[in-house]
Design a protein around this nucleic acid. Sequence first.
DNA 1: AGCTGTAATTGAACATCGTTCAATAAAACC
DNA 2: GGTTTTATTGAACGATGTTCAATTACAGCT
Lengths: 199, 199
Amino acid sequence: MGRRSDHSREEIRQLALGAAEAIVAEGGFKALTARKVAAAIGYTVGTLYLVFENLDDLVFQLNGRTLDQLYQRMLDEKHHSYSGKKALYALATAYIDYAEAESPRWNMLLEYVAGKDEVMPDWYLEKLGQVFGLVEETLASTVGNQDDKTISQAARVLWASVHGICILKIRQRLDLAGGQSTGEMACMLIDNFVEGMSR
Amino acid sequence: MGRRSDHSREEIRQLALGAAEAIVAEGGFKALTARKVAAAIGYTVGTLYLVFENLDDLVFQLNGRTLDQLYQRMLDEKHHSYSGKKALYALATAYIDYAEAESPRWNMLLEYVAGKDEVMPDWYLEKLGQVFGLVEETLASTVGNQDDKTISQAARVLWASVHGICILKIRQRLDLAGGQSTGEMACMLIDNFVEGMSR
DNA sequence: AGCTGTAATTGAACATCGTTCAATAAAACC
DNA sequence: GGTTTTATTGAACGATGTTCAATTACAGCT
């Protein structure tokens, strides 16, 4: 066929990302192939490559949308106006719940390792910064009288840790004895970490 | 050709794992292909499939060797007979150093997500348990008078956290401002966590 | 209407991937 | 030396990401 113009380039982009989300949600990371995405939106492979540089590009953009969702969930939770440690619990719970509910999508945030010298797009770093920012301000209002730099660093440490717990749980690298839930582990972390900082 | 018997099955297995390690160290995770491994050890693809169930199996066994190395490094460090928080720092440092020095290999420990109902082999879980056990006993001797279950859970939380820091650093998902090293972040974590527990 | 130029879309082609298995060649046995 | 056994091969299959000449449909002009 030739020009159809049923959809603008931007529309195709959105359609493709939507279809890709569904495919990943359904069959996990490995199920995502260019041909499947194309078929799902009624186009062929070639068209995809007019809109995305390559599959990695598509995945990156999909990850962007995942980060947006994640941020939104955490923001909603924060607006329930908890304070102190409770607010941190709430953030962690929102994060963990999302990761468990949408585990294939969430997994993909890490699965794509950046190639040797491949850089991460600025817009992606910005989205990441948003999430960390949220933790930062919550932590700041929880442990008083610490300088900004310490808070900023502690927020990163704390969130990387929550993240680590999430990973090992979801990838089942941790279910040797113990039998705590991810949420309980995160609480234990936050409890002790915050306690340690407030001295 | 027919029977050559230059190498026993077990020898081929070891040769293949060695070659695979080299390939991953050189070109990262994506560079590992069956044909490359086969060529590197002077056999053809078919032979590989007599020794390994499939590529996932090979990767799992390779991961087993990685876990062994990791455990050994941490054990060596522990035998420098530090005590208290210093011992935990030492363990974390050994872990982080290994992850940074052998990042492609270390990455592979996570990259292979277990298929839907695919279970992890027992021997693999055992190797994982070894590493956690090391942290457990070190933590136990650092924070006194806590019951075993708490220690065991705390060890998992703490190590998942160190792991999380490692991941975000190595995959460059964390270099927004701050500029702490992985080691510094781990120290901050251990400091506050242990401090929080000892109250 | 008809012609023409432009641009959107296609899908066959290429190299490579994991995986399988009939065919083959070398050792072992009698 | 002939026969059996078995380790090893490599062609074959289906599926992958990616490319690009060929094709088709629309827009504008006469």
